[in-house]
Computed example of a mutant assay.
Amino acid sequence: MKYYDIMNSACLDVGLSMNEEIYRKFIQYKDLIKFWNEKVNLTAITDDEQIIKKHFIDSIKIFKFSPLKEAQSIIDIGTGAGFPGIPIKIIKSDVDMILLDSLNKRINFLNEVINKIELKYTTTIHGRAEDFSRKSEYREKCDVAVSRAVANLAVLSELCIPYVKVGGHFIAMKGPSVEDEIQEGKNAVSILGGKIEDIIKIEIEDSDLKHNLVVIKKVKETPNIYPRRAGTAAKKPLK
């Protein structure tokens, strides 16, 4: 139970609580990350404490956006090793969670995590975000889209906002300096049907780590021409 207290503090900070079953799932998840990381490049962070703080607690802090606790369907775009989607799912077990990633090795890892720690109502998608948001079963179907992927806000918005229902939210997990990125991406967000609603500052327990949640509300439908073809958003971000 070495890390129980720090994880419990993080949960309490966002109005949630830790219990032994949730903690056990997180520790199983950590062990699977370390095992798979020897053959698949999942993360450069391999120290137990750093996995707990930089991945797990960082992901838990997304619940600082309190309406997330009421969401019934969430998609995590560019989930990688499952952040923030799997920690969200461990904490909020009743949510329908979709984990999307373009690398099949990571999807294989995620499927093992889902099976080993028994995460119900969790789906993985192997593919590009631009392709699946054009499908009727995914377009504007989720209450919330989340992403911790490394891309600027204009690019991420084009990949994520099309999945969100009108009235729902896209939450972009960003580093400590987001002001310039928000100014540059504000028009793109608007074009895609979104409106920047809040910027929530995040601090990680027992560390100097600071982050931001950029909260975007979906206020109107995304025009049918978006997202553009795979790779276009990164090459020619909306301005």
Rank of each mutant, 00 (worst) to 15 (best):
K2A: 13
S9Y: 13
C11P: 05
L12D: 02
D13M: 11
D13S: 15
G15E: 13
S17F: 14
M18I: 11
M18A: 11
N19K: 14
E20Y: 09
E21M: 12
Y23H: 15
K25M: 10
K25T: 09
K25P: 12
K25S: 13
I27L: 10
Y29C: 06
K30M: 15
D31S: 08
K34C: 08
W36G: 03
E38A: 13
N41Q: 09
I45N: 10
E49N: 15
I51V: 08
I52G: 11
K53Y: 09
S59N: 09
I60G: 05
K61L: 15
I62V: 15
F65S: 01
P67V: 03
P67F: 00
P67R: 03
K69E: 07
K69V: 12
I74R: 09
I74C: 10
I75M: 01
I77W: 10
I77Q: 07
G78K: 07
T79F: 12
P84R: 04
G85T: 05
I86E: 06
D96A: 11
L99F: 09
L99A: 08
D101K: 12
L103M: 13
R106S: 04
N108E: 14
L110K: 05
N111H: 01
V113R: 11
E118A: 11
Y121G: 06
T122Y: 00
T122W: 00
T122F: 00
T124I: 06
E130Q: 06
S133C: 14
K135N: 05
Y138K: 04
R139C: 03
R139S: 01
R139H: 01
E140P: 14
A145V: 06
A151P: 02
E158L: 06
L159S: 02
L159W: 01
C160S: 15
I161S: 07
Y163P: 10
V164W: 01
V166F: 03
V166K: 03
D180E: 15
D180Q: 13
Q183C: 07
G185Y: 00
V189Q: 02
L192K: 04
L192P: 10
D198W: 02
K201R: 14
K201M: 05
D206G: 09
S207V: 06
S207L: 03
H211I: 03
H211T: 02
V214F: 00
K217P: 01
P223R: 07
N224C: 09
N224Y: 11
I225G: 02
Y226A: 02
G231Y: 00
A233Q: 07
A234E: 12
K235F: 06
K235R: 13
P237D: 06
L238R: 02
